Deep mutational scan, measured.
Amino acid sequence: QIFVKTLTGKTITLEVEPSDTIENVKAKIQDKEGIPPDQQRLIFAGKQLEDGRTLSDYNIQKESTLHLVL
Rank of each mutant, 00 (worst) to 15 (best):
D31S: 12
H67F: 13
A27L: 14
V25F: 03
F44P: 00
Q39S: 08
L42S: 00
G34T: 03
S56T: 10
D57G: 04
R53V: 07
L68E: 01
Q39H: 11
I2F: 04
T11Q: 07
F3V: 05
A45Q: 14
T54S: 08
A27Q: 12
T6P: 04
E33A: 11
I22D: 00
I43M: 15
N24H: 14
F3A: 04
T54L: 09
P18H: 08
K5Y: 08
F44Y: 13
T6C: 14
P36M: 06
D51I: 05
Q30P: 02
V16Y: 15
G52Y: 11
T11I: 14
F44A: 03
R41M: 14
N24Y: 13
K62V: 12
V69K: 08
A27N: 12
K47L: 13
F3H: 09
D38K: 12
T13E: 07
L49E: 00
R41S: 10
G9M: 04
T11R: 09
S64Q: 09
A45H: 13
P37L: 13
Q61E: 11
P18K: 06
L70I: 14
E63P: 03
P36W: 06
D57W: 12
G34K: 06
E17T: 10
N59R: 07
K62P: 15
T21H: 04
L66I: 12
T21C: 05
H67N: 08
S56V: 08
G34R: 06
K32Y: 08
G34W: 03
H67W: 12
E23V: 08
D31M: 14
E33Y: 09
L49K: 00
I60N: 01
Q48W: 13
F44D: 01
T6E: 04
E17H: 10
N59P: 03
P37H: 11
V16G: 03
I35S: 04
E50V: 08
V4G: 01
D57C: 04
K62C: 10
A27W: 13
Q40N: 03
D38S: 13
E63Q: 11
P36A: 10
P36K: 07
R53H: 11
D51K: 04
L68C: 03
Y58Q: 03
K26L: 04
T8S: 15
L49N: 00
K26S: 02
E15W: 15
L42R: 00
L49Y: 01
L70A: 09
S56G: 10
D57H: 13
N59T: 05
D51G: 07
T11S: 07
Q30A: 13
T54H: 06
D31I: 14
E50H: 08
G34M: 05
G34D: 05
F3M: 06
Q61K: 13
E63D: 15
